[in-house]
Design a protein around this nucleic acid. Structure first.
Lengths: 126, 126
DNA sequence: GGACCACTTGAAGAGCCATTCATGTGTTCA
DNA sequence: TGAACACATGAATGGCTCTTCAAGTGGTCC
């Protein structure tokens, strides 16, 4: 994806948003919009993990964790595989890991107050 | 603590999450977790826009839009500058645009069911 | 079979959040 | 000055969501 000048980009973010469905995009991003799920995903990025161990790692009750895991699974962000009496959870694929990575990266830089090119006036679009 | 080193990645996502503050990360991502704000940001990515015109572009009431704009401004995602009797809104910087871009990109690919490298233990799922 | 473990599921309650309605502030123009 | 415009603000409402408590299901080992 090109940074900087994308002067002749025919597909706008707005079009893509409505194509995919703004509600669906919002729903997926909502998965990253809570501390508990954020911690779950971050822990899972280090490797697969059983449910109880996972709940313990992120410091939440096992039941609450299970509820969130179901939500994440329904969104296609994590997978769960039965192994003995445990169920091993893992990130669905690298896209999820990358999305988490990007979110972290950007927020880290936003918090610092770092600003590069102001997006305000560079390209005249009308 | 490392001083902004990206190359040598000994810091896990979990560490970074807690360093920045999971709640703050969640709060910022929450800004992208609703259709209305998503549309606002997507419209703003095309260029600056006055409040009323913006509300009209995303199809929401002026008051509701103003409330959301305040929220986005408090999060440091957009800026508003008075010009005449209008107030021109714009994305704060390119990081915001990129974050939106990344979110769109990833969700587009998630929805397709596309999967590349499994992020962890190969598993057959449900 | 029965005790036990790992995890899920359902319901209920508290808190939060986005929208609406009504009103308030600031600006331009006649 | 007053009317009209552009936008912000406050309160109230309805809906949604995260958590907790209390069962319920599937699996293992003796």
């Amino acid at each position: 994806m090109g940074h900087g000048a994308d002067a002749k980009n025919t597909t706008t973010a707005r079009e893509r948003l409505e194509t995919v469905g703004a509600a669906d995009v919002a729903a997926t991003l909502q998965a990253l919009a809570t501390p508990s799920r954020l911690r779950i995903l971050a822990r899972l990025q280090e490797g697969p993990c059983a449910a109880t161990e996972l709940a313990d790692a992120v410091g939440m009750e096992q039941s609450a964790c299970s509820h969130q895991l179901r939500l994440l699974r329904n969104l296609g962000l994590v997978t769960g595989e039965r192994r003995g009496r445990s169920i091993i959870y893992a990130l669905y694929d690298n896209h999820v890991a990358e999305l988490l990575e990007q979110a972290l990266y950007h927020v880290e830089h936003l918090r610092v107050g770092l600003r590069d090119t102001p997006a305000s006036a560079p390209t005249a679009v009308t």
